[in-house]
Structures are given as structure tokens and as C-alpha cells.
């Protein structure tokens, strides 16, 4: 019985992240539009876009290989599995021990790897441009992410997210400088990984500065839908990650009752909404960087991560 409930909860988590992800993207777009005094598309627009793309024909470049057709599903699957392993409304789910934070980052790395390969497959200059820039950004974001993981693991004593949540939600933590630095580092990494302003512009088309959009330029129809869905899942994943590590309050503990789970779900929704609005405000208030300024931006995250770790060596209570 316990096993069945565990499996159901894990299944619910997978469906919840999948169902909410386009909504989050829609919310961010809506708020951004309102901040620019535009009316903006409704929050449900991404769902409609996905349905529309799903129904359309795929127009495949003449030179595209099987890798190009398989990649969208690989990217989607890797991102979905990663998103399903981040605690959203409850911790200690059936399979939460499958992968720790490092494995989660690597899973997203797999998704990026296949996206970059797919970008190079059609044999166009834009695809290669996007792929090479994406790998450069990834190469700088990953060490920053790992140092952030390091800081968190030093505080919480584990890289397993469920353990981290339990520890941070307990009274033993208090306010720590190192966690603050780690938060800033993680936000910078999240912006870069999700191709948000100031690193990349998710709304851009036909611009030499674009990264993510250049890679997926040749995609259409259901393939594009899977990639867009994966992108919004990734955004949700990072928000859930920031939420569960730094504001874990409300998440239902392992073997919580129905009330605890409902509270967890409500608090997760609230966190997503707040995160989405904050992202929109942030993106509206700054400009996009030149591509070769991005290393400085990510270098800051790297330094903050390292600083957070070093502070902990100076004193475990910082």
C-alpha cells in the first residue's frame, strides 16, 4: 500500500511539473507584457501554442538525420526526469534518491548536449553558431553550479535534495552569508541556463546575438513543441530548485498526510507565482549583454560560489 501511494505521488509530481511548466512561461510573458504597458497574450497562450505545434506537419531540413528527429524526445525526457526529481510539493518521494543534485545537473547537461548536436545536424551556419555559444555558456555555468552545490552540501551535509530540504527547513540553519552567496550564484546560473535576459533573449528571432533560438531554428511542428516544452520544464525546474533549497517552507515532509500535501502544493504554486513575477520584473529592468560579456557575468557566479564555500571553511556558522 505504501509503495502504491509512493508511486502515485511520484506520478503526480511528474504530471504536476509537466502541467504547470507552460503556465509558468505564460505567466512570465504576461507580466513582462504588462510591465511594458502592453496587454500581452493570456497566460494559457503557451498551452495553445503547444497544441497548435503538435498538430502541425514537421518540415524537416533535407540533410537532417535520425539524430535530429530523436533529439527532441531525448531532450524532453532528460529534462522531465530531472524536473521530476526536484522536490516540488513534497520530499522523500519514491524515486527521489535516484539522483542527487550533481546527477541532476548532469542530466540537464545531457539535454544540452543533444540540443547542441541537433543544432549542428542540419548543416546551417545558425545552428552551429547557437551550438558553439551554448556549449561555451554551459562550460562556464556548470562549474559555477557545482560550487553552489558544494556550498549547499557543506551546510546540509548531503547532495541529496530531500536531505537538503529537511535540513534547511529545520531550525538549525538560521541566516547564513554563504547560503546568500550561493543563492545569487544559483540565480545567475539559472538565468544563463534558461536563456533569459541578460544572457540570451527568449523572445528574439533573426538576431546574431541569439543562442538558444539559433539552435532550434530548423525545428518545426511536434519537434519544436517538445523542445519548447522542455525549455519551460527547465525554467520550472530551476524555480523549484531555488524554492526547495532556499525557501523550503511548506514542502510536505516525507510520509505527510493529505493536509500536508495540499499545503505543499499551495506553497509550491505560490513560490512559482512569486518567482515568475520576479523574473519578469528582473528581465524588464535590464538589457541583454553582448555574448562575450557573458563570461564575466558567469565568472561572478563562479566567484560567489567559491566565496560561499570558502566562508564555510572559515567558520561553519557563516
Amino acid at each position: 500500500m505504501e509503495l502504491i501511494i509512493g508511486l502515485i505521488l511520484q506520478g503526480v509530481q511528474m504530471l504536476v511539473v509537466l502541467a504547470l511548466a507552460p503556465g509558468l512561461a505564460g505567466l512570465v510573458r504576461k507580466v513582462k507584457a504588462r510591465l511594458m504597458r502592453r496587454r500581452g497574450a493570456p497566460v494559457v497562450q503557451p498551452y495553445r501554442d503547444l497544441m497548435r505545434l503538435m498538430r502541425k506537419d514537421v518540415v524537416l531540413a533535407e540533410n537532417a538525420s535520425w539524430l535530429f528527429r530523436v533529439s527532441p524526445y531525448m531532450i524532453f525526457a532528460a529534462t522531465w526526469v530531472a524536473a521530476a526529481l526536484v522536490p516540488t510539493f513534497a520530499i522523500g518521494l519514491q524515486f527521489s534518491w535516484t539522483a542527487d543534485l550533481i546527477a541532476l545537473v548532469a542530466l540537464l547537461g545531457s539535454a544540452r548536449f543533444f540540443l547542441a548536436l541537433a543544432g549542428m545536424d542540419a548543416g546551417t551556419s545558425f545552428g552551429g553558431l547557437g551550438a558553439s555559444r551554448e556549449m561555451m555558456i554551459g562550460a562556464l555555468a556548470e562549474p559555477a553550479m557545482l560550487l553552489m552545490v558544494f556550498t549547499v552540501a557543506l551546510v546540509a551535509g548531503s547532495t541529496q535534495l530531500s536531505n537538503v530540504v529537511t535540513f534547511v527547513a529545520s531550525d538549525a540553519v538560521g541566516i547564513r552569508v554563504s547560503m546568500g552567496l550561493a543563492l545569487v550564484a544559483l540565480i545567475i546560473v539559472a538565468l544563463a541556463e534558461n536563456a533569459r535576459i541578460p544572457v540570451d533573449n527568449p523572445a528574439t528571432h533573426l538576431e546574431l546575438t541569439m543562442v538558444h533560438e539559433a539552435m532550434v531554428l530548423e525545428y518545426s511542428g511536434r519537434h519544436l513543441a517538445m523542445i519548447e516544452l522542455a525549455a519551460s520544464l527547465k525554467l520550472l525546474l530551476y524555480m523549484a530548485l531555488i524554492g526547495c533549497i532556499f525557501v523550503p517552507w511548506g514542502i510536505a515532509p516525507a510520509s505527510a498526510g493529505a493536509g500536508g500535501l495540499a499545503l505543499g502544493a499551495l506553497s509550491f504554486l505560490a513560490k512559482l507565482a512569486v518567482g515568475g513575477v520576479m523574473l519578469a520584473v528582473f528581465e524588464t529592468s535590464i538589457a541583454k549583454m553582448r555574448v562575450f560579456r557573458v563570461p564575466d557575468f558567469l565568472g561572478a557566479a563562479l566567484m560567489l560560489g567559491l566565496l560561499g564555500t570558502l566562508l564555510l571553511f572559515v567558520s561553519r556558522s557563516l
Binding site: 531540413a61 540533410n63 548543416g123 530548423e218 511542428g221
Partner: peptide
């Protein structure tokens, strides 16, 4: 459930 149609065309490459 959605679509399984597929056709081949020259790569788009932003119009080149």
C-alpha cells in the same frame, strides 16, 4: 494523438 506527418524541405537557415 497529435501528428505524424513529415515532409522534407531545404533547410531554413533564416532565409538562406
Amino acid at each position: 494523438l497529435a501528428s505524424r506527418r513529415l515532409r522534407r524541405a531545404p533547410a531554413w537557415d533564416c532565409g538562406f
